[in-house]
Design a protein around this nucleic acid. Structure first.
Lengths: 341, 341
DNA sequence: TATCGCTACGAAAACGTTATCGACATCGAT
DNA sequence: ATCGATGTCGATAACGTTTTCGTAGCGATA
């Protein structure tokens, strides 16, 4: 740890004590006024409120939290600010307004790999003190042991031992693959996500099953892992498209790798969708803007965020075990990146 | 305020007292061990550390903060999670790693209008307690009075009385307009941002001056305010393109309104860039993906974010008044949405 | 042996809140 | 007049840390 010391400006925060002194009452009374508790005369309330306004007093979140163990803040941990998380963030951020809670976001900063377990550390540091509950949008598993209610979004670690909300990854992959089959494609490549992620496994299952139902069988030679990131996808996509007998269509397990695939196709002089059909997964905003626009599977990301908030609030209110696993439907979005063979 | 009470799980946080009791020392000693302070024997340190690991103790950020007024956390307030803020977030999030600080993001949730002053309230609530410093990415002005160092990114309120980092909006707008002029356009429409924002004013100035330098004069009939959002831009853009003598090119003051403009053009059966040239501002990731890809002015958003945290950290360390206003250069990015008349 | 200096440790006071509970009025009813 | 009820308010103990400062131990020096 770096040893920093901060000579701060000589500004002094106005505390509840200042208000009390100025208003000529005790801190207890001021606290009551602030929290609208019973037992203070109308005249007093008015006077105290006036002083509060005059002094511009704002109660210290920290002190309040320390004492009451209640902050009305829920934290959301995202691994990184990529399109998917950002959409989730929008959803939560919208759902939170008017709920009486506030939202605080923390990002691991994309330091995947080296710093394993940061989610756990953060959860532990923040919980019981700074936040009343948390939403996890992190790829790696966070086992239980948190001291606050937690709900996971798209729990990449599988049906975890905590409440979750996710989308129907399996059906979505089914939809995507069937779409390609319906277009007449038979050699369909697959660009998977990180194999340790549950969503990636489910999407691969969907791909397999769809093929089998069509009387085909998944060919390992046509399958690569694309790592859910644009730049990670170009290598594997390149391999696929350089095959002696390349696929006529590729199902990429998320939009970012689909974009990467289209980059590679362009680079190789292949036209999408004329020479190659591409379908993605997620329907991030970007996917509608590409040339051609990407056919993909929609995940209602913003709704996932808002459902997570609802779930968490129910949990925090102790409303006993509501539906503990919300799964939202996925749907095919046909755009320009797919075409009959 | 809703009156919520939370019957929480009977989980008890392990506190420093627990550690102290288990290790058979005082809390003071444990605190010293945690913070690596001088005055504790090697054997004791070792034993305490062992207990800490065993119990899985994590110090409470809140209590620590309350006492020491130091959290090593810097807060970043964004108005909303739109592409611009998100890029900034990425930049800050990257720059923060390894600095010894942590990043906590808060979003106003897009409740512009009604809830004016939330930034101020939040700053006040968080500062002095939860965060050691703050970065503001909010459109409306936040006057001083904060009790912690603050730096503003793209301070829409003009050269504020606080350290800022922004991009050279004026030159950027100059570049964009000159580019259109060079292509032979003479009737150039302008879609401005919110008139109360400094960046919007500067971009409009750039537009005007570029025209004047070319011996032209800005025609109010060709200027509309587009509000920096995609859906807000469609109305004004529609007006512009329905003019008896419509412009042959439009300079939109940010990428989002440029996208809106292209939507309208498409709807009207106009081809971009054949019938209409469009240039945006910001160079958000989306702008490279549109059809055609958008010619725009690059703002180094991630760098702006990272410079902001550098600046803030210097401020917090008390390194006296370093460069207090960082302005980063803008550059034209020529893509497919512009063409000679 | 008395004194000193040093190290290792603990007692206790903060930090700014909230919550409990007792004190003191005031007042209507007996 | 006395009593209880009711309505206002304030002392004070927490909450989990950090930090200051005092003190006990102890070997070395005078």
């Amino acid at each position: 740890m770096t040893d920093l010391q901060a000579p701060r400006a000589p500004f002094r925060r106005v505390t509840i004590t200042d208000v009390a002194r100025t208003a000529g009452v005790s801190v207890a009374t001021v606290s009551k006024v602030i929290n609208g508790r019973y037992g203070v005369a109308a005249r007093t309330t008015e006077r105290v409120q006036q002083v509060i306004d005059d002094l511009g007093y704002e109660s210290s979140l920290v002190a309040r939290s320390l004492r009451s163990h209640r902050t009305n803040v829920i934290g959301i941990l995202v691994a990184e600010f990529e399109p998917f998380s950002t959409e989730i963030l929008k959803g939560t951020s919208q759902a939170i307004t008017g709920s009486g809670y506030e939202l605080l976001a923390y990002s691991g900063g994309g330091r995947a790999g080296e710093d394993v377990g940061w989610e756990r550390r953060y959860l532990s540091r923040l919980s019981g003190t700074l936040i009343d509950g948390a939403i996890l949008v992190t790829p790696t598993v966070v086992s239980t042991g948190a001291s606050v209610p937690v709900v996971a979004i798209d729990p990449h670690a599988g049906p975890a031992d905590m409440p979750t909300v996710d989308a129907d990854n399996f059906s979505g992959a089914l939809l995507a693959t069937e779409h390609l089959l319906r277009l007449g494609h038979r050699r369909i490549g697959f660009l998977g996500g990180r194999p340790d992620l549950e969503s990636a496994r489910l999407r691969e299952d969907g791909y397999r099953i769809a093929l089998e139902r069509a009387g085909l069988t998944a060919d390992p030679a046509l399958m690569r892992v694309g790592g859910y990131q644009r730049h990670l996808a170009v290598g594997p996509a390149h391999e696929l498209l350089s095959l002696p007998e390349p696929p006529t269509a590729i199902f990429a397990a998320n939009d970012l790798s689909a974009l990467g695939t289209m980059d590679v196709a362009r680079e190789l002089g292949l036209s999408v969708p004329d020479d190659l059909s591409v379908v993605g997964f997620d329907n991030v905003p970007e996917s509608a803007l590409t040339t051609p626009p990407l056919t993909t599977v929609n995940q209602p990301m913003q709704e996932m965020g808002s459902r997570a908030v609802d779930l968490l609030i129910q949990l925090m209110n102790g409303t006993e075990q509501v539906c503990t696993h919300v799964q939202l439907p996925t749907a095919l979005v046909e755009r320009g990146s797919t075409r009959p063979v």
